[in-house]
């Protein structure tokens, strides 16, 4: 869901761009609280992994594909602030080197995928964790739920930008309905990939999963 240049007019792109810059500035400040010797490399690797998996478009419906957005995956792995920055790094590399997503649309894409998707994921993940049993195997499920919700909400965020500054002639309501329904399907793929990845990582190195570590108030120190 990378918006190319031209879909949204420049005033809207610039305004949302300012929001994206402000959000990223806050994330840069707050991410410091989440990053230590172990999580900093993990955040970098999360960006790398998201870049790679975003190349893997999967078919969803007749003639349509989708790919991971990664907001939920990153949020569960490294916490929301570092997650937002990780996704922004990916979007920057894609827009600047791969011509994937426009340059004037970069702020729109950062807003939808690094801010909206991550924020929604963070909230949904926390809510799901509260409802599910407090065991490790709940984490991939909570992550899947967050992933599933984050995709259509990000699509709705695009539809809102289209309603404000879309250059096309299609009515905003139609675009919203089409974006939302298509991305509910893509959200299922997002949920599956997120769940599988978190399951794999949590079963090998649960200590590196922010969303699980952060469950515990006190740290257990195991004596060797």
């Amino acid at each position: 869901m990378h918006i190319p240049d031209g879909f949204i007019d420049l005033p809207t792109s610039a305004s949302v761009g300012l929001l994206a810059i402000s959000g990223t500035a806050v994330a840069l400040k707050k991410a410091r609280t989440e990053l230590d010797d172990r999580t900093a490399p993990m955040a970098g690797l999360t960006a790398v992994f998201i870049f790679a998996v975003q190349m893997l478009n999967f078919p969803v419906a007749a003639g349509t594909s989708g790919h991971l957005l990664g907001g939920a995956l990153a949020t569960v792995l490294v916490g929301p602030w570092a997650a937002s920055l990780a996704v922004t790094v990916v979007l920057g590399v894609q827009a600047l080197l791969f011509a994937d997503g426009g340059l004037t649309a970069l702020g729109l894409n950062i807003f939808n995928l690094s801010i909206v998707a991550v924020l929604v994921s963070h909230i949904c993940f926390k809510l799901a964790k509260r409802v599910l049993p407090k065991i490790r195997s709940s984490i991939p499920l909570a992550a899947a739920f967050a992933a599933f919700i984050s995709v259509p909400v990000s699509a709705a965020s695009f539809a809102l930008q289209y309603a404000i500054g879309g250059t096309g002639t299609a009515p905003a309501g139609t675009v919203f309905a089409a974006m939302f329904s298509t991305h509910v399907l893509i959200g299922i793929g997002e949920a599956l990939i997120t769940m599988l990845t978190i399951s794999a990582i949590i079963s090998t190195r649960a200590d590196l999963v922010y969303g699980w570590k952060n469950n515990k108030v006190t740290l257990e120190v195991k004596k060797a």
Binding site: M1, N57, P59, V60, T64, S65, H67, F158, I186
Partner: peptide
Amino acid sequence: ASSHPDGLEKVAENE
């Protein structure tokens, strides 16, 4: 990977 247009591109095409 699937070479079909992604969700946004497909919606843009249809609309």
